[in-house]
Design a binder for these strands. Structure first.
Length: 404
DNA sequence: CGAGATTCATGTGAAGTATACCTTTAGGCTTAA
DNA sequence: AAGCCTAAAGGTATACTTCACATGAATCTCGTA
């Protein structure tokens, strides 16, 4: 039984308790640091390429690639900020739009992308029903109405093309060549190097973009970045020695992902604070690592459509009894039963097959197509989540599906 | 015994369908003069 | 007569289904040593 004053005391206490954090924002994903470390050559190159825009000349299209957390998006945003600043000082009609193509239901198809663009220009359109050509036309007209230098940044562009084919890129370049007054510059960002390689030659040449590689950070570089951020983020002495090093080492092990390192540090500190510790210790990092991965998976799972969840539930259910060698056939059998039980019409095997493939793309399961010789051909499904998270995943799934 | 044919269970591509939503158009009803 | 509303017609994107064919190694078959 908590007395009325109890909660009040708690809050008072909470307020007066000194926090580990000085400025937590510094460690959050959207934070824009003053200086970007170890990316001078890339920034330089990007600046060189984009600069003509300030003289109202069309810059080359640009393609940035490198693993996640190597500063692609950050660098691009930095360049964007600088450009917009200079442009507005000199009255240059410059406009930059940043779109992440991976966001489901926002920009993951050609139609939705253009509709999103029109939205940016303040001309919202319905999300279905119109011919795609019509959208292009509207977009084209809007652009050509006023003289404007337009830069379109497409993050995770490989996702877009993988789902919808090359036509989008082709159409966008075509628009540019037809524009009279305005100029459209494309910036593609991708972590898939093969994407640019495998692009249709015709498209490649019509894009004619300059490629810039973002190599992974090494452990020392990550350490430096982390050190810089943690000085800003924490009160002095709140980080025990070795913590930054270990975060850096963890992240370096995973292809030098700086974002991950920063997340790790932040979550570690959050855990430390919640535990009532005065400072962040090394073993907070391990807890943080597990938590980050779990949270990521939970988030993905919760936002999936019901059918996806049902398929996933079947996979995990089978996994409980038989951790190895899960095949599509058995998953489908169980899925059929479950989807009927919860009043969801069962989808065909064909569709479920695609769903499984999509779950693979999301990184929740990993699948390999194998041939079992005489016994046919199937996908071998493995669960890609940390085992410690699985009970909780089952819980989430059965809640979402309102299974008993 | 080994090369080639067979087989199985499902992968995968293409085309078709259902649904939800869009615009256009034409008819009917209301309204105001 | 002009204006407004409504419903039908004609169109699209998306999620899914249907159909049909592709896969690829374990197993089978059968000729040969």
């Amino acid at each position: 039984m908590i007395k009325k004053d109890g909660i009040n005391d708690f809050f008072q206490n909470y307020l007066s308790k000194s926090s580990i954090f000085k400025n937590k924002k510094v460690l959050q994903a959207n934070y824009m640091p003053e200086t970007i470390f170890h990316r001078d050559p890339q920034l330089r190159q990007m600046a060189d390429i984009m600069a003509p825009v300030l003289k109202l000349e069309k810059p080359s299209n640009l393609f940035l690639y490198g693993k996640t957390g190597t500063g692609k998006t950050l660098s691009m945003k930095h360049i964007n900020d600088q450009l917009t600043q200079v442009a507005s000082q000199n009255n240059i009609p410059l406009r930059i739009t940043y779109i992440n193509c991976k966001l489901k239901k926002v920009a993951d198809t050609e139609y939705r992308l253009i509709s999103q663009l029109l939205c940016e220009f303040g001309k919202p359109v319905s999300f279905t029903g119109l011919p795609t050509d019509e959208l292009y036309k509207q977009f084209f007209n809007t652009m050509d109405n006023e003289e404007i230098m337009y830069i379109l940044v497409l993050d995770e562009i490989d996702q877009l093309v993988k789902r919808n084919g090359n036509d989008i890129l082709y159409n966008l370049t075509r628009i540019n060549s037809e524009l009279k007054k305005s100029q459209l510059t494309l910036v593609g960002i991708s972590n898939d190097w093969f994407f640019a390689e495998n692009l249709d030659l015709r498209i490649k040449s019509s894009l004619g973009w300059e490629e810039i590689l973002f190599p992974p950070y090494n452990a020392v570089q990550i350490q430096m970045i982390l050190r810089n951020r943690s000085d800003l983020a924490f009160e002095t002495g709140c980080i025990q020695p070795g913590v930054v090093e270990k975060c850096a080492a963890y992240a370096a092990r995973e292809h030098g992902d700086a974002r991950r390192a920063i997340d790790l540090l932040r979550v570690s500190a959050e855990i430390a604070e919640r535990d009532g510790c005065e400072s962040v210790a090394i073993d907070h990092i391990d807890k943080a690592e597990a938590k980050i991965e779990r949270d990521r998976v939970f988030e993905i799972i919760k936002t999936q459509p019901k059918q996806f969840q049902a398929v996933l539930y079947s996979i995990f259910k089978i996994h409980e009894q038989k951790p190895e060698n899960i095949f599509t056939g058995e998953v489908y059998e169980l899925y059929k039963e479950i989807s009927t039980r919860i009043g969801l019409g069962p989808l065909t095997q064909r569709r479920v097959s695609d769903i499984v493939a999509e779950l693979d793309m999301l990184g929740i399961v990993s699948v390999t197509v194998i041939s079992k010789g005489r016994y046919g051909r199937t996908r071998e499904i493995n669960i890609a989540t940390p085992p410690s998270a699985n009970p909780r995943i089952m819980k989430i799934l059965s809640d979402e599906l309102s299974l008993a």
